[in-house]
Design a protein around this nucleic acid. Structure first.
Length: 393
RNA sequence: GGAGAGAUACCGAAGUGGCCAAACGGGGCAGACUGUAAAUCUGCUGGCUUAUGCCUUCGAUGGUUCGAAUCCAUCUCUCUCCA
């Protein structure tokens, strides 16, 4: 039950007890438990936030249970209202299909491909009739939905709550029933969908209600808001070792603890050690974060790649060396500094390029360039801002 | 069906005839400081030019006016409440 977050001790105890009981039952019946977690393809990239539940799935997988990676291609059409104080924009079937394309492949960075069932919830949701939906709806009251924090808030503010948003929980609950689920994994924002909707529908359909494994929510690179594509604070898992390492280093110190707890393989003891060392001044927070970044990077890439990413980071940012690889540009005669910046796509417009120059953000071989309208002085390494490099030949 | 509110730049939000390329906040970018952290400070944040200029922009289209984001008309879209 490590890394879980039920927000309620009673619930956690109940779930722990049910889990034990379910494990025993499985053993007696000599069958693996059916475990799943659903992922709505609302964007093309899976990110670190998704991997928390994926790693829980992996644990079950390693213990020999049957794990389903469910792609919510049908639920994505509705949009989960759970993490929003606003209605989601509606996605089209085409957008969802496009986003879902590489979801499973990305997931196999964590899950064991040979042991994972990949399913789409359109498989059963698309066949429900209106009557079926009505029957599902009979298990819930409007009050239950209005009591949910995110709906209550919107109601309070006089913001719209669309009827279709209430379908989401029913759909997800039906997923659980359709797969005769023993265990469902999900973030704490899914509490209602899992514990209320899923269990209730299973009972109504004569199944044993599932055990919910509720994980904590990972903040994004800004350290406060939950990691989400729409807030632009994600660490994608397909981003490359160097970039992942760099993004992890930019996470504020205040979020380090959460990151270590939720996405590293460090034991609670190791984490506690790191935290006391940092607090005592024995360990520099930067070094602690590097440790964290290397650990996380090595989960998704090889150890060698993680080490290389760390070296790269140290060289580039601590020792301020220029990167080994960068795009190249062939200088044409008569081009000004601004021309080059624009031609190499290092600024959106001439105005922006001029601004960067005015702000002393443009360097050639380390020398600040003062004039944008001057002819480009000589070939060399052009640096625009902190991160953009160009080898001008 | 009835009553009301609204549509402003990336987002939120002021502006209700000229001083509006449009306050303020957030975000973003750049610089300083640093641990490429956070916090803080400074500047920038439509485009073109480099000058005290021009062009495009305040839901859409027309109109009034020397002059409109601001007034009028029509339209489109959105939300809230009552039934």
């Amino acid at each position: 039950m490590q890394g879980t977050d039920y927000g309620d001790e009673e619930l956690q105890k109940a779930m722990a007890a049910e889990l034990r009981e379910r494990l025993k039952l499985a053993e007696k019946e000599k069958r693996p438990l059916r475990v799943y977690c659903g992922y709505d393809p609302t964007s093309t990239d899976l990110h670190l936030g998704h991997t928390i539940s994926m790693r829980k799935l992996r644990q079950f997988q390693d213990l020999g249970h049957e794990v389903t990676f469910l792609i919510g291609n049908y639920t994505a059409l509705v949009g989960d209202p759970s993490d929003k104080n606003k209605a989601r924009p509606i996605l089209t079937q085409e957008q969802v299909a496009e986003n879902a394309k590489t979801y499973a492949e990305q997931a196999f960075r964590v899950l064991d491909k040979t042991k994972t069932k990949v399913r789409y919830n359109s498989e059963w949701l698309s066949h429900l009739s209106l009557v079926d939906l009505i029957r599902l709806g009979q298990n819930f009251t409007v009050q239950q939905f209005l009591a949910r924090e995110n709906f209550a808030k919107r109601l309070d503010k006089g913001e719209p709550i669309y009827l279709h948003e209430t379908f989401y929980a029913l759909m997800q609950g039906y997923d659980a029933a359709a797969m005769n689920t023993d265990i469902q994994v999900g973030g704490s924002d899914q509490l209602f969908n899992i514990i209320v909707a899923g269990r209730k529908l299973q009972e109504a359909l004569g199944q044993k209600p599932l055990v919910g494994i509720i994980t904590g929510i990972l903040p994004g690179t800004d350290g406060t808001q939950r990691m989400s594509k729409s807030t632009g604070n994600i660490v994608p898992i397909n981003t490359g070792a160097d970039d992942m390492f760099g993004k992890l280093m930019s996470v504020p110190d205040s979020a380090m603890g959460t990151y270590m707890r939720l996405v590293t393989r460090f034991s609670p003891h190791e984490i506690a050690q790191i935290e006391t060392d940092v607090a005592a001044g024995v360990l520099h927070p930067r070094d602690a974060k590097m440790k964290m970044a290397k650990e996380i990077t090595s989960i998704f890439y090889t150890d060698e790649e993680a080490v290389a990413a760390q070296d790269h980071f140290i060289k580039m940012f601590q020792q301020k060396e220029i990167p080994d690889e960068m795009p190249e540009y062939k200088l044409k005669s008569g081009q000004t500094v601004v021309d080059v910046i624009l031609a190499a796509n290092m600024a959106e417009s001439k105005s922006k390029a001029r601004q960067l120059i005015d702000q002393k953000g443009v360097r050639l071989d380390g020398e600040v360039l003062e004039r944008g309208d001057a002819v480009f002085p000589h070939p060399g390494v052009l640096q625009v801002g902190k991160r953009r490099f160009l080898r001008v030949k």
